Computed example of a mutant assay.
Amino acid sequence: MKHQWRPMVAADLPEVMAMAAVVHAGYFEEEQVFAERLALFAAGCWIAERTDGALPPQPVGYAVMHPARLGYPPSLNSLLHTLDDHADCLYLHDVALLADARGAGLGHALLAILREQMRHSGLTQAALVAVHSSRPYWEAAGFAVLQQMPAALSEKLASYDRQAVYMVMTSTDAIG
């Protein structure tokens, strides 16, 4: 099976919601959150598809990222209203892959997209909140737990689960 990422469009939002319900049960976000991220920063919204020759491509995952301030991610299920003028990192807001798409190289391909978007945006840092015990995956990808967390960040993390951690990746090749 072949898998690939393509830019997200508004017509993908019902599929995004269906995949989020499967992959991120317990971390509900309304469709308007995804629609707003797409409207504010379309370059950071992606759909993973399985492409099997004669069959129409089938969505198997999605990713949403946008510029933000390091250490200050938006709360779960909240609107941004606008991108932060003082953004200093690319925040990987959400990644979801259906079980049968895992191990197909989509994570590696997404990291290449993330790095390219960092370069394009002139950002040298990326951040995310690791949930579902995904910390080892993100560490292997070059992310590390932020050691000095603002109190507000600790409160936000508590709304996810006890294992949620805020992670940062610095890329010296992001600018250039």
Rank of each mutant, 00 (worst) to 15 (best):
H120A: 13
W46T: 00
V95L: 14
V9F: 07
Q58G: 05
L40G: 06
P7C: 05
V60F: 11
P57W: 09
A25I: 09
R119W: 04
M19K: 11
H132C: 03
M149V: 00
A25V: 10
K2D: 11
A63I: 07
L90R: 06
A101L: 05
A130N: 03
Y72V: 07
A68S: 12
A158G: 01
A126L: 02
R115C: 09
Q147W: 06
E155D: 13
A104P: 07
F143N: 07
D85L: 00
Y160P: 02
G53T: 01
A35M: 09
C89H: 15
G122M: 06
Y62V: 00
I113S: 10
Y166D: 01
L13A: 06
D85Y: 04
K2H: 14
L157Y: 08
P7I: 03
M169E: 13
A144F: 02
A126Y: 08
D88Y: 09
A35K: 08
V95K: 08
L55C: 08
F28M: 03
D85A: 15
F28I: 05
A140G: 13
T170P: 05
G122V: 03
R69C: 03
A109E: 14
L79F: 01
H132S: 01
A43F: 08
D12P: 07
F143H: 10
L123D: 13
A87S: 15
R50P: 05
